[in-house]
């Protein structure tokens, strides 16, 4: 009996150690990523590149040792904001519809649909973008504004990206709207509100911090998306001067040039610095948004 117990106790202790090790490994990963990206990119600082120059210069000539990230940063910001602007109203309306108005059968259709949309790999979105969105922009949208383009533009990238982030934002919005207690709806209706008034005055107000955070998470997601955008956004190194100008977001830069980065001095450090910018921005956006959402769920 005691021998058996002893065995069980050791087994339990050993298991606890294994579990703690596993979890520690998971938790420390971001720290390791940050440390390693920082170490690598710090060589840039060591060789006379100021942080200011790296972030705000637009001279990108790796062979001459000039690494101005501004065109890529601006491209990334523009394409991200534009995609969220396109996706936001759609997500917002659908989330309200599915949580407040929709019939049960419709919800049952839309959930798998958004799951499928979320599951389609990035590269397939890219293929679809080339087949459908690029011609749409070059043959329909741009000519409408009297502009000639190849179709590989900021706008194209943003459209493809917006569709990719819709299921992501939508899922979070639905989750957040569902945390608003049903009693509030009942209370509002009992005071003589219409359904729409309840939504506008009560539910959206209650969920507001969460809704903003959902879009924060969407921004972070869009900012880091790589392959699909790379395939359709044009990839010309300059600050985009309009919707129909080609753009070159940060993730595309990293993915496109990893092959050559060992052949030019400091190029590898520069690309790691690009990854560091991505990492820090996205980490912070995620952190703040998630904290707000946690607080919201806690307060209910």
């Amino acid at each position: 009996m005691t021998a058996l117990s002893l065995k069980r106790i050791y087994q339990d202790k050993l298991n606890t150690v294994v579990m703690i090790m596993a979890l520690t490994l998971v938790i420390t990963t971001p720290l390791i990523i940050f440390a390693s990206l920082y170490t690598k990119s710090s060589m840039l600082f060591a060789s006379d590149h100021s942080l200011w120059d790296l972030l705000f210069s637009s001279a990108w000539e790796p062979t001459k040792g000039k690494f101005g990230f501004l065109p890529f940063i601006i491209s990334s910001i523009e394409i991200t904001i534009l995609s969220v602007i396109i996706a936001a109203p759609i997500c917002f309306l659908v989330a309200i519809h599915l949580t407040q108005y929709a019939k049960h059968w419709f919800v049952k259709i839309m959930y798998p649909v958004t799951d499928i949309l979320a599951g389609i790999p990035s590269v397939v979105y890219g293929v679809w973008g080339i087949l459908v969105v690029v011609p749409l922009v070059s043959d329909v949208i741009a000519p409408f504004f009297g502009i000639q383009t190849t179709g590989y533009t900021l706008l194209t990238g943003a459209i493809v990206l917006s569709i990719m982030i819709i299921p992501f934002i939508l899922n979070i919005l639905i989750e957040i709207l569902n945390t608003v207690p049903f009693e509030l709806t009942e209370a509002g209706l009992s005071l003589g509100s219409t359904r729409w008034q309840v939504i506008k005055h009560i539910i959206l107000k209650k969920a507001k911090p969460g809704i903003i955070s959902a879009f924060g998470l969407g921004i972070a997601r869009a900012f880091g998306e790589t392959i699909a955008v790379l395939m359709v956004a044009g990839n010309v190194i300059k600050i985009p001067d309009g919707l129909f100008s080609a753009s070159y977001p940060l993730p595309a830069l990293i993915a496109n040039n990893y092959g050559e980065m060992m052949s030019i001095p400091l190029y590898d450090s520069a690309l790691m610095f690009g990854a560091l910018i991505l990492f820090v921005t996205i980490f912070l956006f995620n952190l703040v948004s998630r904290i707000v959402i946690y607080r919201l769920e806690r307060s209910l």
């Binding site: 207690p181 009693e183 509002g188 009992s190 005071l191 003589g192 005055h201 107000k205 209650k206």
Partner: peptide, 20 residues
């Protein structure tokens, strides 16, 4: 239905103060 509901005040199990 909004008029109907207005004729009946509702109190639920847990108080549901509006977010204001």
């Amino acid at each position: 239905v909004t008029d109907l509901r207005k004729k009946m005040g509702l109190m639920s199990q847990r108080p549901a103060p509006l977010p204001m």
